[in-house]
Write a protein that binds this DNA or RNA. Structure first.
Length: 188
DNA sequence: CAGTGGATGCTCT
DNA sequence: GAGCATCCACTGT
């Protein structure tokens, strides 16, 4: 399975399928251990109601980044999925840091390894992703996506921090990972 | 451990 | 003017 095939299909296959892939930006990053799926028919999604304003990238080609500002302070990054015009994306919620830890620590203000990239806002800060990357293609030389070297076991839970469509269990976490945004809690 | 509240800017009503 | 796809510091067990 290539990255293009994975993200080019349904976001509901791409989201769990991305667990275990390694994301690198200029050689800094790690294993994807937590994501959430969003799509157009989903009241919690920025793409709900069609392409307007900040969400237009979600309706573009798969394999590009959709970056938005969260709570006025943080950046959050998504991988656009599915066919052009469908408004689907996978929110990157946590990485297990594997490469460039010194650089991540510097960008994150010297926090512990556990907090380097375990959370959507932390992850973008650790990798240096900002709105300048909105719409960027996830291709070399800047970005690299490396397939899993072993099969990841994935568990499914409700999404975090939303108030609408809360009954949809579209959050996916690597089973047993201590690098998710809330390890040690329910369905980490 | 759990719970609360502040920071801060963009989108939508 | 309200409401966020968040994080951190602080409080109280």
């Amino acid at each position: 399975m290539t990255f293009d095939d994975l993200v080019g299909g349904s976001v509901h296959d791409a989201a769990p399928g991305l667990i275990g892939w390694t994301l690198l930006l200029d050689g800094v990053g790690g294993r994807i251990v937590e994501v959430e799926a969003y799509e157009e028919s989903d009241a919690a999604s920025h793409s709900f109601g069609g392409p307007r304003g900040r969400n237009v990238v979600m309706f573009g080609p798969a394999g590009h980044l959709y970056v938005y500002r969260s709570y006025g302070i943080h950046w959050c990054a998504n991988i656009v999925c599915g066919a052009v015009g469908h408004g689907a994306a996978v929110l990157l919620r946590a990485l297990e840091p594997t490469q460039g830890l010194d650089e991540m620590r510097e960008r994150r203000g010297g926090v512990s390894n556990r907090l380097l990239s375990s959370g959507p806002g932390r992850l973008t800060q650790a990798l240096g992703i900002t709105d300048l990357d909105n719409g960027a293609r996830l291709t070399p030389p800047r970005f690299r996506l490396v397939p899993p070297d072993r099969e990841a076991r994935v568990v499914r839970t409700p999404r975090i921090g939303i108030t609408r469509a809360v009954e949809r269990e579209w959050r996916y976490v690597e089973a047993g990972s201590s690098w998710s945004s809330r390890p040690g809690r329910r369905a980490a």
